[in-house]
Structures are given as structure tokens and as C-alpha cells.
């Protein structure tokens, strides 16, 4: 046993050196990536903050109506947003919203094609699976440090950590949706002369769409759950008051900021959740 402890494998050291190497060799790349992302996110936030609040609320209410045709949801959206303004967290809510939506956008942009590829190439899925497991189970703080080193303080490391944490959901659900397309449908497509491309767009994606949308909702929720952690590396938003409340043991403040997060979560969930309909025609 002594021998084992004496000859410690330098795993942590290797990883640290790897990150250092990346930081030295590709500093320019990471810096410019960081800058671009920061500009996009901050720009969007600034634009939303600049808009009058009532206009945004009306817009979200309109979206709720357009997506779900439900007056109940519209009323809920308006009232909950008014409550957030009343709590005094309007700007923080917008910052969080932007972070969550961009994280989700990038997750879907990466995750959906990856999920499709994995469904078409079983070998890729075999390789991907442990990586996805790792991304979901490894404690967030562990990769918070390298992202911090590579991207510096601010909203970008928050965004990257959130993406790492939430990416597995859309990949998995896209994979699930695409690989559960019934064989008869694939054969029907082929027998009418579909090319691979047509098979994907006319058969596989429409069939998998409800599952992929479930991946989207999950991705949003996972991103929201990262808000406080993102605040630790300097991302603005509702996480900040929570962290501050924690440091100053301020129960009232912590509770109010937490409430705003919960409201945002419920609102986004209701907005993006598909009406409780099974994938049409699923057995």
C-alpha cells in the first residue's frame, strides 16, 4: 500500500500542465473567442435592458399566446414578470435570461448534430457515452477552474461551464429520438427514393422532433441551475445577489433572488415545453 501512495500517478499534474500548455499556446485564440462571446452576450443584454420593460413583457406575453393559445399562461407570464420588477431584479433577470438562452442555443447547435451523428454511427456513440456521463457527473467546480484560466473572469467562463454541464441533455435526447425512428418509416422513405439527406429531413427529424424539444427544455432548466455557479466566476445575473446574500448571511435578499430564479425557471419551462402530446404515432 505504501508503494502505491509513494508512486502517485500525476494525473492532476498532467491535466494542469495541459491547461497551462493550452493557455500558453492558444492564448490568442481563447482571448479572441472570449472577447467575441462577451461582446455578443453583453450587447444582447444591453439591448434588452435598453428596451422599456412593458414592451418586453408584452413581447413575452405575445410569445406565450402564439406558442400555446392559453390565456392562463399569458396571465402567469405578465404577473410573474411584474413581480420580478417589484422585487427589483429586472436587470439581473435579463442578464440571466441572456446567459441561459445563449447557453441553450450553443448547446442545441452543438448537441443536435452530434446526437444525429451518434445515432447514425454506433461507434461514435460508444465513444461519446462515457464523455457525456463524465460531463454530467463531474462536479462543476472542477472544470470551473480551467475555464477561468482560459477565458478569464466574467460572463464567458460562466457560459462555457454552463454549456459543458447542459450539453449532454440535447445530445442524448437527439440520439434517442433519431435512433427510435421505426424501421418501417425508414424503409418507406428509402423505397420512395429518399437520399440520406432527405431521409434525415423528411423522416428522422420530424419523428424525433418531440424528443429533441424535450432536450431543449431540459437544456434550459440545466442552464438555469448553473446560474449561481456562473456568478462565482463573475457572470452577472440573478446568481450574484444569491452569492452576495450567502456571503453576508442575508436571508431576505437570498430568498428574494432565489424566488426570481424560480419564477424565471417556471416561466421558461411552461413557455418551451411541448403540449403534453406523445410523439405523434408513437406506439
Amino acid at each position: 500500500m505504501d508503494w502505491l501512495t509513494e508512486h502517485k500517478l500525476p494525473i492532476g499534474k498532467w491535466l494542469g500542465q495541459g491547461v497551462d500548455l493550452l493557455n500558453q499556446q492558444a492564448a490568442g485564440f481563447f482571448d479572441s473567442l472570449s472577447m467575441v462571446l462577451e461582446t455578443i452576450l453583453n450587447g444582447t443584454t444591453a439591448a434588452l435592458v435598453w428596451l422599456p420593460a412593458w414592451l418586453l413583457i408584452a413581447g413575452i406575453a405575445g410569445l406565450a399566446w402564439w406558442l400555446h393559445r392559453s390565456w392562463g399562461l399569458v396571465a402567469f407570464a405578465v404577473l410573474s414578470l411584474l413581480l420580478i420588477i417589484n422585487l427589483g431584479y429586472w436587470q439581473e433577470t435579463l442578464e440571466t435570461l441572456v446567459l441561459v438562452l445563449y447557453a441553450t442555443l450553443f448547446c442545441m447547435l452543438i448537441g443536435v448534430p452530434l446526437g444525429i451523428a451518434a445515432a447514425h454511427h454506433p461507434l461514435l456513440y460508444t465513444i461519446l457515452r462515457p464523455i457525456l456521463d463524465l460531463m454530467q457527473t463531474i462536479p462543476t467546480f472542477v472544470y470551473l477552474i480551467p475555464t477561468l484560466i482560459l477565458f478569464g473572469l466574467g460572463v464567458v467562463p460562466g457560459l462555457i461551464s454552463t454549456i459543458i454541464f447542459a450539453l449532454a441533455a440535447p445530445v442524448r435526447l437527439t440520439w434517442l429520438g433519431i435512433s427510435s425512428v421505426p424501421n418501417t418509416l425508414i424503409e418507406a422513405g428509402k423505397s420512395f427514393g429518399c437520399s440520406k439527406h432527405q431521409l434525415l429531413w423528411r423522416i428522422e427529424l420530424p419523428y424525433a422532433m418531440p424528443t429533441i424539444m424535450a432536450g431543449l427544455t431540459q437544456c434550459i432548466m440545466l442552464s438555469l441551475s448553473m446560474v449561481v455557479i456562473a456568478a462565482l466566476v463573475g457572470a452577472d445575473g440573478l446568481g450574484k445577489p444569491v452569492v452576495r446574500a450567502l456571503n453576508t448571511v442575508n436571508i431576505e435578499k437570498g430568498f428574494e433572488a432565489g424566488l426570481a430564479i424560480v419564477i424565471l425557471a417556471i416561466l421558461l419551462d411552461r413557455l418551451f415545453k411541448q403540449p403534453a402530446k406523445q410523439p405523434a404515432g408513437a406506439p
Binding site: T184, F192, Y207, G281
Partner: peptide
Amino acid sequence: LRRDRIAMVFQQFGLLPWCTVRENVGFG
């Protein structure tokens, strides 16, 4: 050949459940 010459009818129908009847007929 599959597009112009040969069509197929399946035991389990093989219709696209998210499409209307007309869209299914027009699939090929």
C-alpha cells in the same frame, strides 16, 4: 428506379404520422 419505377406498400402501412393524409399520398 425507386422514385420513378417501383413503389411499395407495407404491412404496417409506413405512413408518416405527423403528416396529413394528403401529404402522405404526395410523399413520393
